[in-house]
Design a protein around this nucleic acid. Structure first.
Lengths: 231, 231
DNA sequence: ATTGCCACGTGAAACATATCACAAGCTCCC
DNA sequence: GGGAGCTTGTGATATGTTTCACGTGGCAAT
C-alpha cells in the first residue's frame, strides 16, 4: 500500500541500510525510542536527505514531525536485509583468513553462521574449529546440496579461486563472498561480492600519495567519514 | 604536452586500476607483451571503453592501432598507485583477524609490509608473529612517530575502534584501513577505507532474498562479475 | 480550534559516472 | 605512397545517484 518511491534501490543504498540497521541496534540497546533522519545521519556519516531517500526506497517508515520509531525501523531493516532468515554459510579455505572468519563473532551476532568448512590440505581436514569439522573438498557438492546451503565464503589462494567457485556453483550456491585477489567469473544467476585487501590498501596508497603531492598543508577536501560508503 | 582527460578520477576508477595492475602482473609473468583494452576488460570484468577511460584519466599510455605495452603500463600503474613507495604499515589488534592480516602474503607481494603490531592484551604483548613483535598500546605514539608510519590497519573490537583511531591519528597516521564494524569519525586530513564483513554478507543476503522472491526461475539480470567494482 | 513548529517524503535539479560512437594515429602490405 | 584494418583517446550522450527545497502531515500548547 501507499506510494513509497519504488525505483530500485542503488546498491550503495543497500549497503547503507546495513549501517542504519547496526546503528539502530545500538540505539535500541541504549533505550532510545525515536530517531530523526538528522540524528541517524550523524551516527552513520551520511546526510539526512540521504537517510530519508534510502529508507523511502522501501516504504514509509517514519512519522512526519516526529521521526522514526527505533524498534519498528530496526525490525523493518532486518526484514528487508533478510537477516533472520538465518542463511547457513559454507567456508572454503581454512588457512589464516578462513580460521579468522570461522571465529568472527560478527556473523553469528547478525544471524549468519558458518555451518560447514572445507579445505584441500589433508592436515587440516578433520580438525574442529568452533564446532565446525573441516571436510575435504570432494565433499563440497554432497554436503552443500544436502544441507541446502546457498551462501559461501571463499578464502582460498588466488590460484585456486576460480576452480573452487565452479565447484560451489555446480553444487548450487547462489551467493559468494570472495576474499581472493582475483576476478571471478560466475554465471549471471549467482551473486558475487568481493573483499579485496590489496585494492583497499592500494586505494589508500593512491590517495596518500596524491594528498602528499598536492599541497600537503592546505588541502582539506579529503574523505570525511567512511570513504567506502559515501559517494 | 598531450591532452589526457584531466578530470579527477572517480574513486571507483582507482579501485579498478588496482585490478588492472594485478592483471598486468599476471600477463607480464606469462610473457605477454601487448594488451588491448578489449583484452584487459575481459580479464577484469570491465568494459573496453571503461578501461580506456580509466587509463586516460592518468595519461596516454597506449598506442592507437596497437594497444598497451604490458610492461610499461604495469610500471605506470605502480607509480600511480604509489606501490613501490613501500609504505610501512602498523597493525592494531592481534586477534584472529589481526593475525591473519600479519600472515597475509598479498601485502608483501604488493610492496606493503606490516612492520609494527600492537595489542591491549598483556598475553599477546611480546609474542612474535612473522618477525613482528607485538607491542603494548601505550607505545603506539612513540613507535609510529619514530618509524614515520602513515598507514594503519585497525583490527580491534568495535567498542575500542574509535578510541584507538584517535590514538593513531594523534600519532600522525594519515591513512586507516578499518575492519571493525563501526562508523569511524576522523579529521578530514585522514583517509579512511573500511572492510566491513557484516555489510558484505547482509548485502548478499538482500540480493539473495530479492532474487528468491522475484521470479526465481526466469530472472537473468543479476550481477555478472565483481558486484563490488562494476557499476 | 488555531497557531507554530517540526521532520518526513518526494519531485525536480544538480552532479557524477558509464557508455556510445567516431576521429585520429599507428602498422602492415601492396 | 596510399589504402585497409585495427585500437586508442575523447567529445557527446545516456544513465544513475545525490542533493535541494518544499508540500504534507503530525504534535503540542495556547
Amino acid at each position: 500500500m501507499s506510494g513509497s518511491t519504488r525505483g530500485k534501490a542503488p546498491q550503495m543504498a543497500i549497503r547503507r541500510l546495513s549501517m542504519y540497521y547496526r546503528t539502530l541496534a545500538v540505539l535500541r540497546e541504549q533505550g532510545v525510542e525515536s530517531v530523526s533522519s538528522e540524528h541517524l545521519s550523524a551516527l552513520t556519516g551520511s546526510t539526512a536527505a540521504q537517510v530519508r531517500r534510502d529508507l523511502a526506497y522501501f516504504g514509509n517508515f517514519g512519522r512526519r514531525g516526529v521521526g522514526y520509531e527505533v524498534h519498528s525501523l530496526h525490525t523493518h531493516m532486518q526484514d528487508i536485509l533478510g537477516i533472520g532468515e538465518g542463511w547457513p554459510m559454507a567456508l572454503v579455505g581454512v588457512g589464516n583468513l578462513g580460521s579468522a572468519l570461522l571465529a568472527y563473532d560478527g556473523f553469528p551476532r547478525q544471524g549468519f553462521r558458518i555451518v560447514e568448512a572445507f579445505d584441500s590440505d589433508p592436515r587440516r581436514v578433520g580438525t574442529v574449529i568452533r564446532d565446525v569439522v573441516v571436510k575435504p573438498m570432494d565433499q563440497i557438492k554432497e554436503t552443500i546440496q544436502s544441507r541446502q546451503i546457498v551462501m559461501a565464503l571463499l578464502a582460498v589462494p588466488a590460484k585456486a579461486a576460480q576452480a573452487v567457485t565452479e565447484q560451489l556453483v555446480a553444487a548450487g550456491v547462489r551467493c559468494l563472498l570472495n576474499f581472493a585477489p582475483v576476478t571471478l567469473m560466475v554465471p549471471s544467476h549467482v551473486h558475487l561480492a568481493s573483499v579485496d585487501l590489496s585494492i583497499e590498501v592500494e586505494y589508500l596508497s593512491y590517495v596518500l600519495r596524491e594528498s602528499v603531492a598536492e599541497g600537503d598543508a592546505s588541502e582539506a577536501e579529503c574523505s570525511d567519514v567512511s570513504t567506502v560508503l559515501s559517494k
